[in-house]
């Protein structure tokens, strides 16, 4: 009997192997495993065997059934895959989900700068763009008709009182201090305006970010430490900084802050045969912000006692930082809103 069974198995496998399509495979399934199929028949015949033979025969027939089933399933699977393959799609066609839009590079830069300071414990504060001379100038120790105002040419509004468009974000310093008690640390992003003729590097409207920290023991060394964290986070760990003495009416001592040139790494040398770096002009440094210790006169103007509190302030132009970070050639690109520009960021 064993040989007979072996023969059935061999024949079945050979037939399955040579079957070409799904239909002939289905026919073979009926031929062997159907209700009147050959293997089904073998189970029926088992009833005629002696009790001693039955268990062995059962095992053998079951094995044949499993082998044939597996072979058929395998062959059928392959056959239907082959059929599916005839209808294969072009997976190289583009996806149909719409492309997401982009956040404006100025907003991205503002967010990036603010998040550095927020992580240091600063609070984001905003203030009005239409300002008074008091907050834009006098409260910040910028006297009327003084040459220190030259840096702050200003748009004025037609009005019976003197309203102007703030020429820097510093007025928010004075406004915030009048309403709050130290200690605090704030960061103030916003639009500012100066009547400059528009060209590749000047715009009559631009964005600034102002920082102010006031407490009972804030020192110049703290200003240096905080700005170093900022510069390294924004421009990379290898960024070096230098603080140059400068003059701003609302801070004293005042400093302008340079970072090592992000193009030449502070070497000053240019690429491809140019003797000077095109970004820093060979100096190795680029100016990124102005800063200093809050001038005691500013504290007095807002009703603080300069003997009891000290603080530092800093301010930077967002467009300038974005231009440096992304290597943008013309400030006007920010306000043309050409989507071919916007979508690069």
């Amino acid at each position: 009997m064993r040989e007979e069974l072996k023969k059935i198995e061999t024949e079945a496998l050979a037939e399955i192997n040579s079957a070409g399509d799904k239909t002939s495979l289905e026919a073979l399934r009926i031929k062997y495993l159907g209700r009147k199929g050959i293997v089904t028949d073998l189970f029926k015949k088992m009833a005629l065997l002696s009790a001693a033979e039955k268990p062995e025969a059962g095992v053998l027939i079951n094995a044949i059934k499993n082998t044939i089933t597996a072979s058929l399933d395998g062959k059928l699977g392959a056959a239907s895959q082959a059929e599916e393959a005839k209808d294969r799609i072009d997976v190289t066609l583009p996806g149909v989900a719409g492309a997401p839009g982009k956040i404006h590079p100025i907003t991205q830069t503002v967010n990036e700068i603010c998040s550095v300071f927020v992580s240091l414990g600063f609070k984001i504060v905003e203030g009005p763009e239409i300002e008074t001379e008091h907050y834009n100038f006098e409260a910040l120790n910028i006297p009327l008709e003084h040459p220190s105002r030259d840096a702050f040419d200003t748009f004025y509004l037609k009005s019976t009182e003197k309203y102007l468009l703030r020429s820097h974000t510093s007025p928010v310093q004075a406004r915030f201090m009048e309403k709050n008690k130290p200690p605090f640390s704030i960061i103030v992003p916003g639009r500012v305006y100066r009547p400059d003729a528009t060209d590749a590097s000047h715009s009559f409207m631009f964005h600034q970010i102002e920082g102010l920290v006031v407490g009972d023991s804030i020192k110049f060394s703290d200003l240096k430490g905080v700005l170093e964290i900022f510069a390294k986070q924004l421009f990379g760990k290898s960024t070096r900084m230098r603080f140059r003495p400068s003059f701003f009416p609302f801070t004293e001592p005042s400093a302008e802050v340079d970072i090592s040139c992000i193009l030449c790494g502070g070497q000053g040398s240019g690429t491809k045969g140019h003797s000077r770096c095109s970004l820093c002009g060979g100096k190795g440094w680029i100016e990124i912000l102005g800063s200093g210790m809050v001038n005691p006169k500013v504290f007095k103007n807002v009703g603080y006692d300069p003997e009891k509190v000290t603080g530092f302030a800093f301010g930077m132009g967002v467009e300038r930082i974005a231009i440096l970070k992304y290597g943008i050639s013309d400030i006007r690109l920010f306000f043309e809103n050409d989507v071919r520009f916007l979508r690069q960021f």
């Binding site: 414990g121 984001i124 200690p183 605090f184 920290v213 023991s217 110049f220 060394s221």
Partner: peptide
């Protein structure tokens, strides 16, 4: 400070009081 040299002043981290609602 100017004549002594700003670059001789160390970098320190101030004791910044966390603001209640930063954003």
């Amino acid at each position: 400070a100017r004549i002594y040299g700003y670059n001789k002043i160390p970098n320190t981290i101030p004791n910044i009081v966390e603001q209640a609602k930063k954003i």
